[in-house]
């Protein structure tokens, strides 16, 4: 396989872009990670790539994904990362809406999302990050003010759309957060949770923000599969 890819790279005039395009357009690359009894019996470790390996969103992707759903993500390139006038990294206030790539990595003040979601310890060399599932992560997704705020922004954005009822809203927000349509069960439980479309606006916003926060905390938001 590597020999073949090396030959292709040379044939295509050493274009890495072409090589990548070829790779991502393959059937194998576009497989999802769903289970298959035959594959699982013959090759449980997926060495032959009969399916996609499930991938967990790292801290940076989680941050970008939430900002993107809330509509706050700034996608500008380059420029300074640290707020001007900063003299000390202790207690640095991280409140950027830029991509996580542009968030400063300060040894004495990692953003809480980074700290909780296995970002590499900036004081040491880390070859591979941990892949943990911890209580602080769950508490962060359930209670952290920044997460609540992104859910608020997302709810405002969603309710601002002209859509045909809550059914359509759920379709849209589940696609935006999970990249797939809701299952009938998901649709049902979310519809039941948000209550009546005739409720007053404040209550509606509150309920929708809670639903979106639940989507942020759900397995399918935290994994690509």
């Amino acid at each position: 396989m590597l020999d073949y890819l090396a030959a292709r790279l040379i044939q295509q005039n050493w274009s890495v872009k072409s090589l990548l395009r070829e790779l991502v357009l393959t059937r194998t690359y576009r497989l999802d990670s769903s289970h298959d009894q035959l594959g699982s019996d013959r090759d449980p470790d997926n060495r032959l790539l009969w399916r996609m390996n499930r991938r967990r969103l790292d801290a940076e992707s989680l941050l970008d994904a939430m900002l993107s759903v809330s509509g706050r993500l700034q996608t500008d390139l380059g420029g300074p990362q640290i707020r001007s006038g900063t003299t000390n990294d202790y207690n640095y206030r991280h409140d950027s809406n830029r991509r996580a790539l542009y968030w400063p990595v300060l040894r004495n003040s990692l953003p809480e999302l980074f700290r909780v979601f296995d970002f590499a310890n900036p004081s040491m060399v880390t070859g591979r990050r941990e892949n943990s599932s911890t209580t602080p992560q769950a508490l962060f997704l359930m209670n952290n003010p920044w997460v609540l705020q992104q859910a608020d922004h997302s709810a405002q954005r969603l309710l601002g759309h002209r859509l045909d009822g809550d059914h359509g809203r759920i379709q849209l927000i589940v696609r935006a957060t999970l990249g797939r349509p809701p299952t009938p069960e998901e649709l049902q439980s979310m519809l039941a949770f948000v209550g009546s479309e005739n409720d007053d606006k404040t209550l509606r916003l509150k309920k929708w923000a809670q639903v979106i926060q639940v989507l942020f905390a759900s397995i399918d938001f935290r994994y690509l599969r």
Binding site: S34, H35, S189, F193, Q210, S218
Partner: peptide
């Protein structure tokens, strides 16, 4: 809200393995 999260997460677990 937590119950909603439980039901979603439970549904998102693979059912056959």
């Amino acid at each position: 809200q937590f119950n909603l999260l439980r039901s979603l997460n439970n549904g998102q677990l693979p059912s056959n393995t």
